[in-house]
């Protein structure tokens, strides 16, 4: 086993968990606000496409980041309009958005870049990377703290920030209230729709950034469907963590670790399909564990 646990593995860990973490943080806010957002996959995908396009068009990672976030935001606003304001079912809207993202990014890839399947170019500038001076010198795991993208640090910073937002901020209180009982929130003079839209906006931004991590940091290219199920893993994390942000981080790291490990094992000759399937099997197992208390739900008296 120690064959795999080398510095390079830990060096690669953050780039695997960061996209999942960002999307799961956003999804957790939505869940707390009472929006069942399973369009994380699609939002991430349009973020990835837009970040690549922004970075390519201006040959700058800043615009890439901006485009990615803006595209995620736009997708989330679309979600909010059709679901929160027009009363559409969250699941149906999510399905629509996911298909739209898949088709739209493939369409634009061909219409704008004339490429089919994937597009890469030296004009796509990657995000800058930093390391943490003290921690990166720790043996073996120190790699996780060396030369990671801007977004890795942002994602880690967001964990305590969002936890504090929920616990200490009036917006956090209202957000939790919106998920518990929107009618009661209205009676308290707060519009749950506004709160939910705000939660979606944050979620959209984070998913857009998650996409940027994929297309202008992990690699500098865009592939059709490159979110490849990470959004669904994020949904699983959302379902099992119930907006406990530190737990979200921990679970995202575990999934990232499985991804990273799978990548290494692949290098050793294991068929790619097996390692690719691992996170989903893990997700099923983890959910079964998380839901074990929900079994036999004899309704609790209200």
């Amino acid at each position: 086993m120690s064959v795999f646990l080398d510095p390079a593995l830990f060096q690669s860990l953050p780039r695997f968990f960061t996209p999942i973490l960002l999307a799961a943080l956003g999804g957790s806010l939505c869940q707390r606000a009472g929006v069942f957002n399973i369009a994380l996959e699609g939002l991430m995908l349009i973020g990835a496409f837009a970040a690549m396009a922004g970075s390519y068009a201006f040959q700058s990672w800043e615009t890439g980041l901006l485009f990615g976030a803006a595209a995620g935001l736009g997708g989330a606003l679309l979600f909010a309009w059709f679901s929160v304001w027009r009363g559409g079912d969250d699941i149906v809207v999510s399905i629509g958005l996911n298909i739209l993202a898949l088709g739209g990014s493939a369409y634009l890839l061909r219409a704008v870049f004339g490429a089919r399947g994937s597009f890469d170019s030296p004009r796509i500038i990657a995000l800058p990377q930093f390391g943490l001076p003290g921690l990166r010198d720790i043996p073996v795991i120190g790699g996780a703290f060396a030369a990671q993208s801007l977004l890795v640090w942002l994602a880690l910073f967001l964990v305590p920030l969002l936890a504090a937002l929920l616990a200490r901020h009036s917006f956090g209180l209202r957000l939790r209230a919106a998920g518990e009982n929107p009618v009661a929130l209205a009676a308290a003079g707060v519009n749950a729709r506004v709160i939910r839209t705000e939660a979606l906006v944050i979620c959209g931004l984070l998913c857009g950034l998650a996409g940027a991590q994929l297309s202008i940091s992990n690699v500098t290219l865009f592939t059709e469907g490159m979110s490849s199920g990470r959004g669904w893993i994020a949904v699983v994390i959302v379902l099992m963590c119930n907006a406990r942000m530190w737990l979200v981080l921990l679970t995202a790291v575990v999934f990232g670790f499985i991804d990273a490990l799978g990548f290494r094992i692949q290098g050793l000759g294991m068929p790619q399909q097996f390692t690719d399937a691992l996170p989903y099997l893990l997700a099923l197992g983890v959910l079964a564990l998380a839901y074990r208390n929900h079994r036999n739900p004899a309704k609790d008296q209200g």
Binding site: V93, G96, L100
Partner: peptide, 19 residues
């Protein structure tokens, strides 16, 4: 016109149906 247009149309249809 790239044929992925069809998927875009599908996505849009669902969104409007949902609403």
């Amino acid at each position: 016109i790239p044929r992925e247009m069809a998927q875009v149309v599908q996505g849009v249809i669902i969104l409007f149906l949902a609403a």
